[in-house]
Design a protein around this nucleic acid. Structure first.
Length: 451
DNA sequence: CGAGAATTAAC
DNA sequence: TTAATTCTC
């Protein structure tokens, strides 16, 4: 029997993992994780911790079935060739990814390494280049993509494997083990717990998903990012004839779409998908950007979201759209700066998803929001946090304001504010910009870029 | 007058 | 994955 190196990347699980199953079918397995500096350097503390917890949980799971995960540190191109030589590896298995970093690295690797490399797709419902229009291209509009996507049969979850591990693996880079926390409750088991919890409320998903004070969303975004659970396993627990389920399945399609688009357009992270918006005269005021990151814009819903992000590494999706729109449109900060900040801070920060969604909000992307659509922070706030619970949770300065008052504190007279010990400009900022003016300015700026 | 529905709009 | 405005009662 030959020996396969199984390289875990963004698929930190043993279930519903196609490359893993294929490798286990006919090889002795040498499981490896490579801690690459590039992966760490763009991560903020929350994602890094989740990352380590997931790797640690995977190592424990492998140990429990008689194997040992080798954790190697360094760029893959530097360490893999040597590792393959030293450990008598016959072939490599891993799951492919769509990001420019991953694809460039994997292409280079194929040139550098002499043993056969077997790759599979296991992190999306459908692999890139498999959901196509009649012309054989990926649709640049979501709805036709989705219509095609739902008609394709969902690939079955793969069977569990009975791996045979190589004996007496030695970890030649022991110091790396110390970087990985030894205790953790993440990994596949935690992902399954989150899925089971979500399945209890998914029938209401279409109604509750938009309210940041409710736990109406799946909380599976970081699991999907790290691959502690596969999207097909999630899909197979859902039913296409229930509205809440259907709406969540639709979100999985958005996820596939943004990954497929990135696969086909590798410059999405840096360039506007719609070139007419690549010449916007951004203001890029650094102080305003900093006020935004710190949750000090004077708009309660914006500040609540940004504070939730910096305090927890996560933000509710509805609020992600509102805060992102505010940065790009109201403050006219280049969407790439916001994207970078979100990706660094978010526990689920993901190149394909984050760039796709930021370009959508900025109006620069495929099938994006129209350029003149400027989210109104007060309307969004009143609509999706009507009682102000979410705002109060994250902006305690405002906790005594009433439901009606909390969305726009500057609109109330001095006496009302004094009653709550609220001194605008001291205990809570005045609005950083005036909504109506900023809206006009954004539309004019975009119009100018359109020519 | 005011809330909510309907419409329009620069897509 | 909308906002602003007008219409209606």
């Amino acid at each position: 029997m030959t020996t396969a190196l199984f390289w875990f990347r963004k698929d930190l699980r043993l279930k519903d993992n196609l490359a893993w199953t294929k490798a286990c079918e006919s090889h002795r397995i040498h499981p490896v994780f490579i801690l690459e500096p590039e992966l760490i350097s763009n991560s903020g503390p929350y994602r890094r911790q989740q990352f380590f917890s997931n790797v640690s949980a995977l190592a424990a799971e492998i140990k429990s079935i008689g194997g040992e995960l080798s954790i190697i540190q360094g760029p893959a191109r530097d360490v893999l060739a040597r590792y393959i030589r030293e450990n008598n590896i016959d072939c490599i298995y891993f799951n492919a990814d769509t990001t420019p970093f991953s694809r460039q690295r994997d292409e280079q690797l194929a040139k550098d390494i002499s043993v056969p490399i077997n790759t599979f797709w296991s992190g999306l419902v459908h692999p890139p280049e498999t959901v196509l229009t009649q012309k054989g291209e990926i649709s640049k509009v979501f709805t036709p993509f989705y219509k095609k996507w739902v008609t394709l049969p969902a690939p079955p979850s793969v069977e569990d494997s009975q791996p045979i591990f190589v004996d007496a693996q030695q970890n030649t880079w022991n110091e790396t083990q110390d970087l990985i926390p030894s205790t953790s409750n993440q990994g596949y088991k935690a992902a399954i717990n989150r899925l089971e919890k979500f399945l209890k409320v998914v029938d209401d998903y279409h109604e509750s998903r938009n309210f940041p004070s409710k736990e109406g969303t799946s909380f599976l975004s970081s699991d999907l990012h790290f691959g502690t659970i596969g999207p097909r396993e999630i899909l197979h627990r859902l039913s296409s004839n229930r509205e809440g389920h259907r709406q969540f399945i639709r979100q999985l399609a958005w996820r596939d779409w943004y990954s497929h688009l990135l696969f086909a357009n590798q410059d999405i992270p840096t360039k506007a998908a719609n070139p007419s918006y690549d010449n916007i005269s951004w203001r890029d005021n650094p102080e305003e950007f900093e006020n935004w990151t710190k949750g000090q814009t004077g708009y309660p819903i914006i500040d609540a979201g940004m504070r939730q992000l910096s305090a927890t590494g996560w933000m509710h999706n509805r609020v992600r759209m509102i805060t992102a729109s505010f940065l790009v449109k109201h403050l006219l900060v280049d969407w790439r700066k916001g994207e970078r900040y979100f990706r660094k801070m978010l526990i689920d920060g993901d190149v394909a998803q984050n760039c796709g969604n930021w370009q959508w909000v900025a109006g620069t992307g495929f099938d994006a929001a129209p350029y003149f659509r400027v989210f109104n922070p007060m309307l969004q706030s009143k609509k999706f946090d009507p009682t102000g619970i979410y705002i109060q949770r994250w902006v305690p300065e405002l906790e005594s304001l009433s439901n009606a008052e909390i969305h726009a504190p500057w609109e109330h007279d001095q006496a009302t504010l004094q009653k709550y010990n609220l001194m605008l400009g001291e205990t809570y900022p005045f609005p950083i910009v005036n909504h109506a003016d900023a809206r006009e300015r954004a539309i004019a700026t975009y119009k100018e870029a359109r020519g």
